[in-house]
């Protein structure tokens, strides 16, 4: 019932980092579904296996925007191999927690990063690493609720 967002979540919601798009991005990933109330789209600029720039566009609740913002912060400047290891748990921890009912947003943020990386591998005809072969949680609204 009562939901309280941490000050960190509120801060990232009020002033989200890395909002926008990247023209001719090296990897683009979109996850979620408007029927469920959240869609995240992530853009990556990759040079020498390093994520030199990342931007996002998100349709969703406060937590969806805050987790997008935090996920982009966590992978910016990292190598693609490091970014691949990003977990929803790391996003939640970096935000000082999320209400239980909003945990799926963090899963979506992780999936968005992975979808963008997958797009990069596919575009460049590179063998897809195992970490990126997980199913995306966009088939129904409850599928991200783990």
């Amino acid at each position: 019932m009562a939901m309280a967002y941490s000050p960190k979540v509120r801060e990232h919601f009020a002033n989200p980092h890395n909002v926008g798009k990247i023209e001719n991005a090296d990897g683009v990933g979109e996850v979620g579904n408007a029927v469920c109330g959240d869609i995240m789209k992530m853009y990556l600029k990759i040079e020498n296996d390093v994520i030199v720039d990342v931007k996002f566009n998100t349709f969703g609740c406060g937590a969806a925007i805050a987790t997008s913002s935090m996920a982009t912060d966590l992978i910016k400047g990292k190598t693609i191999h490091e970014a691949m290891q990003l977990t929803n748990k790391a996003v939640v921890e970096a935000l000082d927690g999320l209400p239980a009912v909003k945990l799926h947003c963090s899963v979506l943020a992780e999936e968005a990063v992975k979808a963008a990386l997958l797009d990069y591998y596919t575009k460049n005809n590179l063998p897809v690493p195992e970490e990126l072969q997980n199913a995306k949680c966009d088939h129904d609204c409850e599928s991200c609720m783990h």
Binding site: P16, V19, F59, I65
Partner: peptide, 8 residues
Amino acid sequence: RDMSPVWE
């Protein structure tokens, strides 16, 4: 709306 992929 500027940051919404749905709006785009």
